[in-house]
Amino acid sequence: MATTSTSKQNKKKRWTKKQKKDAWWGLLFVSPFIIGFLIFMLGPMLFSFIGSFTNYNLTSRMEFIGLANFKRMFTQDELFWKSLYNTAYYVILNVPLTAVGSVLLAVLLNQRMRGISIFRTIFYLPAILSGVAVYVLWMQLLSPTSGLINTVLSWFNIQGPAWLFDPVWTKPALILMKLWSVGGAMLLYLATLQNVPKQLYESAEIDGASSFKRFYHITLPMITPIIFYDVITSTIGAFQIFQEAYVMTDSGKGGPANSLLFYNLHMWNKAFVAFDMGYAMAMSMILFIIVLVLTFVNLKLAPRWVHYS
């Protein structure tokens, strides 16, 4: 940052020797990122873009076939629509629920009481556990008869569903599981909550505002920048759901009646089961556009509700 601002100021002047030297050092220090970005992000993205117009099969074939992949996707591939539906279902429920969940949790954990740091640690812990071990654990928790969740439900005379076996309940089960690890976002909110100026609450209290009103008119507006950040990143993350379905369904096949066949899982199958990499690249382009549009809409809507003090 420092380099760019100095360079702007001196645009018309010739750089002194020292400034030139500093600029080179600056570039050198950011070079790991630049090189990494070019090799691992921009390069593959451009390659995918080109590949999406070909019948690339990873090893022996890459011929230009125009828009054929996209045409096939929209008109012939029924699983494309199924997987898009599954993913949209997941995103629409998962993003708001985790946002609300983590805000509420952060507010609860922002109390001044003895031992609060222990609770904070407990709620944060799931965020550092990840991957296959957690999914296997949840498969046990969600087991229809002996699983902890249905056992607890049965105490209240509720007959729990068959979760991962019933296509109606597979996606809700996954969303429930993801709620367990809201600790990561909670930590962000907690840090922001502690930066909300105390005098705002004090004056509101003097004016006789109830605690709900204080939350609604002070806390919430003050943390909207972080909510905004959280919603954008978690939307992008939610569209990329893959691992959960890959691990929790029988050999990554998409679960009962393809109810867990998410967009990326279908893409993966096309790429590495059918070796139809060109088609998979075309799918990734569509996903890229969807996420891009959503992020753009989010950015446009932001001024209406995000409050920058």
Binding site: K82, K253, P256, N258, H266
Partner: peptide, 18 residues
């Protein structure tokens, strides 16, 4: 090559009584 999802999805529909 990737026909299995298509068949299995339908088999599941039958097993679910749909």
């Amino acid at each position: 090559p990737d026909y299995t999802e298509l068949v299995n999805g339908q088999l599941d529909e039958a097993m679910l009584g749909n």
